[in-house]
Amino acid sequence: MNNYIEIKNLYKIFGNNATEALSLVKEGISKEELLEKTNCVLGLNNINLDIRKGKIHVIMGLSGSGKSTLIRHLNRLIEPTFGEVMINGVNVLKLSNKELLEYRQKNMSMVFQKFALFPHKTVLENINYGLMVQKIKEEIYLEKSQFWLKRVGLEGYDNYYPNQLSGGMQQRVGLARALATDAEILLMDEAFSALDPLIRAEMQDVLIDLQLELKKTIVFITHDLDEALKIGERISILRDGSVVQDDSPQKIILNPADDYVSDFIKDINRSRVIKAKSIMTKSISIKKETVPIIDGEMVLEEVLQQITKTNHYFVLVKDSKNKIIGKITLKELLKGIQRPRQEIKKYA
C-alpha cells in the first residue's frame, strides 16, 4: 500500500525495570497499577499506526497522552521498549548509531513547540544548520537557505538573532530550518501551540500552502482539535499511550469511537467542519435543473446558505468532476449540524 511509515506493536515504558513491566503491560495491567507495582510509567501502549506518503497525519491527545513520546520514536530521540518502526521499508530501530545520524540528516527533520532555535546563530545560520551538519559545501547550502528564508517570508532577516524576532517569525525560521534539508518526512511537535491564535492560524495557512506544493509526509502533533481538523488529512487520537481512534477527520466527528473521543469533539462548530459529501444520501438518478447543485467539499454552513436562498427543501451534491453523486435534504442538514443524541443526554 501507500504506507510510508508503519508503527507496529510499539511499547515505551519509562523506568528501571522496563522488561519486567513490559510483560505486565502485555497482560493488560492498567497505567496506575503499573506505577504502583513496578514504579514504571507507561508511555506508549501497543501502538499500531500507518502513515501515508505525502499526507498530513495529525496525532492528537491531551498532555500526558504520549504524543510527544510517539513522535520522538520516529527519529529515535527516544528508544522504544519494544516494537517496530518501519519507514519506507527501513526498520529505524535496527539502525546503528552512525546510520541513525545519517538517517536523521537525510530523511526527516523536526519542528519544535518552543522553536528550539540556536540563540547564538543568526536566522540564516539556523536555517542552514541541517545542511551544515551534513558537511555540504557552503555555496550550495547558502543558496538553499536563502531560498527557504524567502519562501517562509523572512527575506532580509538573514543576520537577525532569533530573540530579535517575534514568536511567529521564530517558528517560520524553525519551519525553514526543517524544510531546508529536503527531508521527505517532517515531524512537527506541537509546532504552533506556543503561538497566539491569529499567528497560529496564519502559520497553519503557511503550512497548508507549502504542503500543496511540497507533498511531504508530515506527522503533526497537537492538542488542539480545531487545528487537527483544519490541517489533518487523517487524525489519530491518543489516550494514555494508546490509539483510541485513527480515521479521517469527517469520520471522527460523525462516528466517534468512544466517549473519550465524543468528549473531545463536543465543543467544535460542526457546521463549519462537516462536509456535504459526508452526510449526503448517495443517489445519481435525480436530475432537476432548478435545484441548486453544490460541491461535495462544501461545509454545512455554506450548504445552509445555498438552501435558504431558494425555495427547495434539498440540494444536489456534485464531486470534483461535476458529476452528481447525491442529495441532502434540509432535515439531513439540520441533523448533521445537531450534536448526536447520546451526547445531548449526557451533557444536558
Partner: peptide, 11 residues
C-alpha cells in the same frame, strides 16, 4: 530543547 533540535538534524 536546543540540544534535541541539534540531535534531530543528525548532529
Amino acid at each position: 530543547d536546543i540540544l534535541e533540535a541539534a540531535e534531530s538534524f543528525g548532529a
